[in-house]
């Protein structure tokens, strides 16, 4: 499917989504509550069949926290970027997509570890790299570590 067709298809499922400008991939910004619904439709509809999640990144935009999903279909060879953002920096949480793409389980754990974004219904929401007793989330912009990070 071309990007325009994809856009049409997604608009047919959930209306009023934002499609920001991106030269490389088609990009969709989803509200947190309809993330799982859209992801499931993208994964399970035969015409889209996004079965390969090739990157899952958490981003701290300064004010907002977000998660970016890079999806590809191995059958149709089209790609899509899903973005979900939240203003809540104290207790950010999204639905997990690890039931759709199993690789998400550990990518989500990594994001929880480093950015502190919780994923609801995740089977094993623990820290991945750091100790369980670690305080703070190192990849956040407001993370302070006087010993290990030297500010220039």
């Amino acid at each position: 499917m071309t990007n325009d067709q994809l856009k049409e298809k997604i608009n047919g499922w959930i209306s009023g989504l934002e499609f920001p400008e991106n030269k490389q991939y088609l990009e969709v910004v989803v509200p947190a509550e309809s993330l799982l619904k859209l992801a499931r439709l993208l994964r399970e509809t035969p015409e889209t069949a996004f079965d390969y999640l090739f990157c899952l990144s958490g981003v701290d935009y300064g004010k907002q926290l977000g998660v970016v999903y890079h999806l590809e279909s191995t059958t149709h060879n089209h790609a899509l970027v899903l973005k979900v953002k939240t203003d809540d920096r104290v207790n950010p949480n999204f639905d997990t997509v690890c039931g759709l793409w199993r690789t998400a389980e550990w990518h989500e754990r990594e994001i929880f570890d480093l950015l502190g974004i919780k994923f609801n219904n995740h089977p094993d929401m623990r820290r991945l790299f750091l100790d369980d007793e670690w305080v703070g989330y190192p990849l956040r912009k407001d993370y302070k570590d006087d010993i290990n990070i030297i500010e220039r």
């Binding site: 090739f54 990157c55 990144s57 958490g58 981003v59 701290d60 935009y61 300064g62 690789t103 389980e105």
Partner: peptide, 14 residues
Amino acid sequence: LRVKFRTPNFSNLF
């Protein structure tokens, strides 16, 4: 602002 590396071994390990 943010650099993320999707490294192959991270996915392959699990």
